[in-house]
Design a protein around this nucleic acid. Structure first.
Length: 240
DNA sequence: AAACTCACCAACCGCGTTCCC
DNA sequence: AGGGAACGCGGTTGGTGAGTT
């Protein structure tokens, strides 16, 4: 049994994308918008599987990608968000305009991870490597800053989130809706998307905690982690 | 100059979740 | 309600270029 392949692999290209393939993909997405990845290759005249097209567009061809080196601010933000969210690269990417989850993941594994290890910090737990089981937390504000000690009772709480300033509003949520192509070629019913629209909607806390009866607007006034639900794809966080 | 090692990153793969019939 | 299709995510792989021996 098992899942059927996402595409007819025998008739699809693999490996690096050519300039012509890129151009075809960009032209198609500009004309029809994102989505319907399954049918896109045929419609765009590409011998690629839909997944591959999606990846190529999201990670490389999207016009709003920043490219270039990560700034120190981005660096710090990634570390903070990772200590908070773990390997939820898509959630982290949602807070870094112009960066993709794949890019951040690669950057983490090649740079930040090593940097933290060099500082004696476990990149998984964000705690000092030599005292992994202790109740010590780490500050990301300055490498030389000595770690603070917390009461032992704190140990019973979830291990993440060292002395984070939970006001994560370093940047505005990235939105270019007005510049995006109109509706998807085969527009999906909204439902979840409606909940993710900016402006009103659920606060981040309510959306995570699945507050019932708050499908359109919560009135708790909460600004959980400084985030509103519409700012990021909260589905992954809610689910996992 | 050749061989080898390492780092980087684009792309692939498998699986979980959501949506639709 | 259940099953299958499609999507999205995170882990992993493989190609390539730079650096070192």
């Amino acid at each position: 049994m098992g899942r059927s392949p996402c595409c007819e692999k025998a008739h699809t290209n693999k490996g690096a994308w050519t300039r012509e393939e890129d151009e075809r993909l960009v032209a198609h997405v500009r004309a029809h918008g994102e989505g319907c990845w399954r049918s896109l290759p045929g419609a765009a005249g590409l011998l690629r599987c839909g997944k591959s097209c999606r990846l190529r567009w999201i990670n490389y061809l999207r016009p709003d990608l920043k490219r270039g080196n990560f700034t120190r601010d981005e660096d710090d933000l990634i570390v903070k968000l990772h200590s908070l969210l773990g390997n939820k690269w898509s959630l982290i990417a949602a807070r870094l305009p112009g960066r993709t989850d794949n890019e951040i993941k690669n950057y983490w594994n090649t740079h930040i991870r090593r940097k933290l290890l060099g500082r004696g910090i476990d990149p998984v737990t964000h705690r000092p490597l030599t005292h992994a089981a202790s109740a010590t937390t780490v500050s990301f504000l300055h490498p030389a800053e000595p770690p603070k000690t917390q009461p032992a009772t704190e140990e019973s709480k979830p291990p993440r989130c060292p002395d984070l300033n939970l006001d994560l509003c370093i940047s505005l949520p990235f939105q270019q809706e007005e510049e995006r192509p109109p509706a998807r070629a085969c527009a999906k019913p909204v439902k979840m998307e409606q909940l993710q629209q900016g402006g009103g909607g659920l606060c981040f806390r309510c959306s995570i905690l699945r507050v019932r009866g708050a499908a359109t607007e919560c009135s708790c006034g909460s600004n959980f982690l400084g985030l509103r639900a519409g700012m990021l794809d909260f589905r992954g966080l809610r689910m996992k």
